[in-house]
Simulated assay, not measured.
Amino acid sequence: MKQRLSPGPKGERFYDWAAARLPAVAASDGGEPTRQRWMPARRSISKPDEIASHFACAQMDATVADLVQLKGCRWKIEECCQSAKNECGLDQ
Rank of each mutant, 00 (worst) to 15 (best):
M1Q: 11
M1V: 14
Q3V: 08
Q3T: 04
R4I: 12
R4L: 09
R4E: 15
L5D: 03
L5A: 02
P7Q: 05
P7G: 01
P9V: 05
P9M: 07
P9K: 03
K10T: 11
K10E: 15
K10H: 11
E12A: 13
E12N: 14
E12T: 10
R13S: 06
R13P: 00
Y15F: 15
Y15H: 07
D16L: 10
D16P: 00
A18N: 02
A18G: 06
A19D: 04
A20C: 08
R21Y: 00
R21S: 07
A24N: 10
A27T: 14
S28G: 05
S28C: 08
S28I: 12
P33Q: 07
R35G: 03
Q36Y: 00
W38R: 02
M39R: 12
M39V: 04
M39T: 02
P40C: 08
P40K: 03
A41S: 13
R42I: 00
R42L: 03
I45E: 05
I45K: 05
K47V: 14
P48N: 07
D49W: 11
A52L: 14
S53P: 00
H54S: 13
F55V: 07
A56V: 06
C57R: 14
C57I: 15
C57W: 13
C57A: 11
A58N: 05
A58D: 10
Q59P: 02
Q59N: 12
Q59S: 14
D61K: 06
D61C: 01
D61H: 09
A62V: 04
V64H: 02
V64C: 05
V64M: 01
A65D: 13
L67R: 02
L70P: 03
L70N: 00
K71H: 13
G72H: 05
C73H: 11
R74G: 06
I77L: 14
I77F: 14
E78T: 06
E78A: 14
E79I: 09
C80R: 12
C81D: 13
Q82L: 15
S83A: 14
A84D: 15
N86T: 12
N86C: 09
N86W: 08
E87R: 10
E87M: 13
E87D: 12
C88I: 06
G89R: 06
G89M: 09
D91F: 07
Q92R: 12
Q92N: 14
